[in-house]
Amino acid sequence: MTLSPTPTSIEALPQPTTSSVKARPRGRNILSDNAWGYLFLAPWIIGMVFFMAGPTLVSFYLSFTSFNLLEPPEWIAAKNYVRLFTQDGRYLNALRVTFTYVALAVPLNLAFALALAMVLNAKIKGLGIYRATYYIPSLLGGSVAIAILWRQVFGFDGIVSQALAVFGIEGSSWVSSPSQALWTLIILHVWQFGSPMIIFLAGLKQIPVELYEAASVDGAGPWRKFWMITVPMLTPVIFFNLILQIINSFQAFTPAFIVSGGSGGPLDSTLFYTLYLYLQGFANFRMGYASAMAWVLLVIIGVLTALAFLSSRYWVHYDDSAK
């Protein structure tokens, strides 16, 4: 099961060991920590063994084969991997597109989500309605309607083009321009900021009010309180959102699939990594090649996640390890 390099690299990381509750007074605790741990983990372990482990190992094996879904896989060693990096220009382009997307969409989405969570955590009238309203775009998820809606916003006759025309800027069609299409997907991702916003909101709720009250007594302004209390107390949640956003954005598929009609166009400008992977696997029947792509992506995400975990000890404050 130690196929991926990820587990080994994270293994070395500080895990919540220091924070665990030691069952000091043994009392009625007849089971050891090991037994309790595995008891709680039992459903997960069963799920791993029956639903995840097999398919994962199979995909790893397939990444060294030529497999068209219909005929038995044929062992070709590392040829898929070599081909990816030395021959496939579209693959390198997909990498570039995906990294650009992640680098822009993730921070923008998180900043937006945090800002709105702060506002919608205030005690104002109609809070529930506001929260729900701002969440609506996220409810739409990967709806097929988005393909058309995005053209209504970013097409030639779209509202963005019309608004720019008011300022005398020549109308253009963002969604169908190779240099701007990716931006419409970044905006789409930022637009659907609901999930991290909810997680931020839940995190904000966990910050004890007393801290703010004490700071007020000390004469701290809102800006100071934000940096001295909110941000540090929120770091576990920020960290969580960051990790999840990195993982999810690298695997972003539906937005490009829907908006570009499954092509990643125009001119491969929105050819996300997983979209290309999907096209190779299901449209071109190169499941072996697609599997190799999947494992390279796993390494990329794994390394970045490991880096985030490594850095977390310098900036993430857990309540349980604080004392």
């Binding site: 053209r151 069609s173 969604v175 169908s176 009609g261």
Partner: peptide, 13 residues
């Protein structure tokens, strides 16, 4: 021009 042709999502557009 290309931008108009690329705008098509399906024949309905």
């Amino acid at each position: 021009p290309a931008e108009i042709t690329a705008l098509e999502t399906g024949f309905e557009t």
